[in-house]
Design a protein around this nucleic acid. Sequence first.
DNA 1: CAACGATACGGAGACAGTCTCCGTTTTGTC
DNA 2: GACAAAACGGAGACTGTCTCCGTATCGTTG
Lengths: 191, 191
Amino acid sequence: MGTVNAAAPRPMRSDAQRNYDRILEVASAAFAEKGVLTSLDDIACRAGVGPGTLYRHFPSRDCLIAAALGESLGRLDALAGRLKASDDPGAALDEWLLAVANHLRTYDNLPESIAEAFRTEDSPLRASCRPLTETTSLLVRRAKEAGAIRADVEPLDIFALVSSVAWASQRRGDSDAGLRRMLALATTGIR
Amino acid sequence: MGTVNAAAPRPMRSDAQRNYDRILEVASAAFAEKGVLTSLDDIACRAGVGPGTLYRHFPSRDCLIAAALGESLGRLDALAGRLKASDDPGAALDEWLLAVANHLRTYDNLPESIAEAFRTEDSPLRASCRPLTETTSLLVRRAKEAGAIRADVEPLDIFALVSSVAWASQRRGDSDAGLRRMLALATTGIR
DNA sequence: CAACGATACGGAGACAGTCTCCGTTTTGTC
DNA sequence: GACAAAACGGAGACTGTCTCCGTATCGTTG
C-alpha cells in the first residue's frame, strides 16, 4: 500500500485535546477523593464540559479509570525495571506484590472494577493491567527458579491473592502497615 | 411493671405476613439468580406488591439480604455446634473457614455487601453475621490453645482473609475446588 | 354483623445516575 | 472568508431507589 500503515493517528483538534486533559485531571481528583464510583456526569460538569463530551473521549467508566491510572502505572513500570534486574528474586517478588497491592488501592473501589474488568475480554482497564500481570509472571518465574517459592502456584493465583488482600484492606480502611501485615499473612502460603 | 417485658411483638396482620413471605421467597430466588444487586422494585413487582410494601418490610437492601440469608445461616449454625464439640481444633477451624467462605458465596456480590455492612455500626446484615464471627473467634481461640495456629493472628484478620478469598473466587468464577485451593493457599500463613 | 380505628397496601412521582442523539459551534485548511 | 470535518453540549430517554399519602383491608368491639 501507499500509506505508511494502518492507523495514521491524526492529532486531536486543539479544543478536543484541551477537554480531554481537563476531564482527566478532574477525574483523577474525583476518583482520589470519592472513589471510582463517582458520578461521571458530575465529573463532566466540574470539567466544564457536557456529558456527551466526556463519553466521546471515554466511552466507559473503565476507560476513564484506565487513563487516570496512568501515573501510578508509570511508577510501577519504573519499579518493575529495577526489580527485574534484582539478584534476589524472592525479595523482588515481595516488593513487587506490595507495590501492586498499593496500586490497587490508588482509588476506592478500584479492586472491584479491575476484577470485573478481568471478566471481559477487551476491557480497557484490563488492558492497562497487562504490563502489571506480565511483570508478575516474570518475577514469579524467577522466584520459582531460585527456589524462593513453591513451584505449584500460578502467577494468576498470586495476582488474585494480592487483589483480594488489597480489596480487604481497603474495605477495612487499613493503614499501610495493615496492608503489609495482611499481605505477608496471605502470601506465606506461596513459599 | 405489670407487662411481661419491653417489646410485646404483636403478631403481623395476615396480609402483611403473606406479603412478607412472598417478598422473601422472590428475593431469595432473585438474589440466587442475579446476585444481591438486583433491582428491588423488580423483586417487589415479581412478588406482586408495590415498592412501598417491600420497603416497609425491609427498609434497606441489607435487611432483605440478611433475611434471605437465614437458611444458609441456619446450616452454618448447625455446623458450628458440631465443630465446637470437635476434639481436633485445627481441623475444625479449617472446616469452619471453608464453610464460611462458601456462605459468603451464597449470592453474587455478597462479600462486597457484607464488607460494606461491617463499616456501619448498626447494619442488619452485620448483625446477622454476629454468630458467625463469634464462632470464628471461639474456634480460633481453641486452635491457638492447641497450638494449631500462630498466637499472633486475630480472629478479625482471619475473617477478613476468608472474606477476601471468597470475594476473589467469586470474581473469578471459581469452582468449589478452586475456592478450596485459594483458601488453603491464603491460610497457610496462619499456622 | 356493622362499624370503626389501626394497620397495611400500592403506585405515582421526586430524585439521581447513565448514556445518546442531534442541532449548533469551533477548528483548521484551501 | 468560506467550507467540510470535527467536536461540543445539553435535553431527554431510561433505569433504579425510595417516599408520601389517599385508599383498601383487617380484626376487634359493641
